[in-house]
Design a protein around this nucleic acid. Structure first.
Length: 431
RNA sequence: UCCGGAAUAGCUCAGCGGUAGAGCGGGUGGCUGUUAACCACUAGGUCGGGGGUUCGAACCCCUCUUCCGGAGCCA
């Protein structure tokens, strides 16, 4: 007897196989019994006919409930009514555990109930699809970076200092060393890595103690930071664009079924695999004011501004060359205008907001030092970071991608909480 | 932190001053091709907590709690 996965079922037509999984749904009609089985790789309808299975096994099989675990043997056959669909003619049924009354019914549920039952909700078809797309986005990113000679360089999660500001940090006691913080970004550590390895990236959870309550925020999310030596602003954006387009193609070719389950508009996704738009912050503000926004030239984009900026675009939009005063201390000044920095934000179409924040980094010791003093940063805590500008400093750039936002946009899932197994939000830490 | 909204059966909701309802889910029975199967019967409730108004409150008022959506901040 061959153990097989449902995704491979079409290779075993008319052969005896054994499937191991869970009951997604069960229906019976007299002497016929339909068990929809799922095994992690897919779903398959199994059909038991009482005279073939025998009265005893048939009665046993009828006692299966939603989400019961079960091993089913039988012979894969083409579905009598559907093209390219298969079903299993059941020859044996072995219940492993008869599930209690399953809390998640086949009708709709509210978000509070589903989030409280997240440990079970992940079994649902749409959640299964979203988590598989997350997996493919993750691997797409890693594959691209590997092909481009980026070396994985993991940043610490426990850190002695803030990357940017301290108001949004989770704080904890670290033995006798005083306060430590959960990392908001590994970027500063990555900058050390490039001086050894040339091009590096990290991928891990980061933490923001912001009291944000929107569909695009989590307090714990996964971020990929990449950093490269001898890469300047233009090439930095080029890498970001190629990476995103690579991931789009990777998901389109690996997750057809998942995108279909999530009812993602695949044509819109294909259309996004084209040269991205580029606009300076100054031009963006002019454009947005024409469209009725009250944004000014020294302000960041609001949520509505991001929608206005991308609503007529089929591709993501880069906003580059930002006013220095609203961007982080480590960004390099624009040589053509000292009031600007060589930073870029990549805004997703369809209202998902910022996918990437990147910049060329300040590589001059004195300029970086004076900027840190101006921001009243504790220089002694950052001496290691300043050292990088003393020992073989080079022009370099990098960027960070929020994994869940990218997954949300690519999958078309409306809320970021469905793009991570266990979302951490301001009012929720269970389960 | 601010601005909105919600809380009634296991779940999703209706009821909005006069005997607590439906669909799904559960249970029992029926059906040889079902697709959120269908049909019949059936069990299931301190109407989020506390206080008030009223002859009478799920419904009106006050308060607390929990959650949702959005803003700001950010990825």
């Amino acid at each position: 007897m061959q153990d097989v996965f449902i995704k491979d079922i079409d290779k075993y037509i008319d052969k005896q196989v054994r499937l191991k999984g869970w009951v997604r749904n069960i229906r019976h009609s007299g002497k016929l019994l339909f068990i929809i089985l799922r095994d992690g790789t897919g779903e398959l309808q199994t059909v038991a006919f009482q005279p073939d299975l025998g009265d005893e096994k048939f009665e046993l099989a009828k006692r299966l409930t939603l989400e019961s675990s079960v091993i089913i043997c039988g012979i894969p056959k083409p579905h009598p009514k559907k093209e390219n669909v298969y079903e299993l003619a059941v020859s044996d049924v072995m219940p492993i555990q008869i599930a209690d009354e399953y809390p998640i019914s086949k009708k709709e549920h509210g978000p509070d109930f589903l989030l409280s039952n997240r440990h079970l909700w992940i079994r649902s078809q749409k959640q299964w699809a979203a988590l598989r797309i997350r997996h493919s986005v993750y691997y797409g990113i890693c594959n691209y970076l590997n092909e481009q000679n980026f070396i994985r360089f993991d940043s610490p999660i426990l850190t002695p200092n803030a990357c940017e500001g301290t108001t949004t940090l989770f704080e904890l006691e670290y033995f006798d060393e005083g306060k430590a913080y959960l990392s908001q970004s590994g970027q500063l550590y990555l900058e050390t890595g490039i001086m050894s390895l040339g091009r590096v990236y990290d991928f891990g959870p980061v933490f923001r103690a912001e009291r944000s309550k929107t569909r695009k925020h989590l307090t714990e999310f996964w971020m990929m930071d990449a950093e490269a030596a001898y890469v300047e602003h233009e090439e930095n954006m080029q890498i970001q664009e190629e990476l995103i387009r690579y991931v789009i193609r990777y998901v389109l070719s690996n997750c057809k079924l998942e995108l279909e389950i999530l009812e993602r508009n695949v044509e819109a996704l294909k259309a996004a695999d084209a040269p991205f738009k580029r606009i300076t912050h100054y031009e963006a503000v002019e454009f947005l004011r024409q469209k009725g926004s009250d944004i000014t030239h020294n302000k960041d984009l609001g949520a509505q501004d991001e929608v206005l900026l991308t609503e007529d675009s089929t591709v993501p939009v880069f906003v580059e060359r930002w006013p220095q005063e609203i961007k982080a201390f480590y960004m390099k000044r624009d040589p053509e205008n000292p009031n600007l920095v060589l930073g870029d934000d990549l805004i997703a179409p369809e209202g998902f907001g910022e996918l990437i924040g990147g910049s060329q980094r300040e590589d001059d010791y004195d300029l970086l030092y004076s900027r840190m003093v101006a921001e009243k940063m504790p220089i002694e805590d950052y001496q290691w970071y300043l050292d990088l500008r003393k020992y073989g400093s080079v022009p370099h750039s990098g960027f960070g991608i929020g994994l869940e936002r990218l997954v949300a946009w690519i999958s078309g899932v409306p809320h970021i909480r469905e793009t991570i197994p266990f979302p951490r939000m301001i009012y929720r830490i269970y389960p």
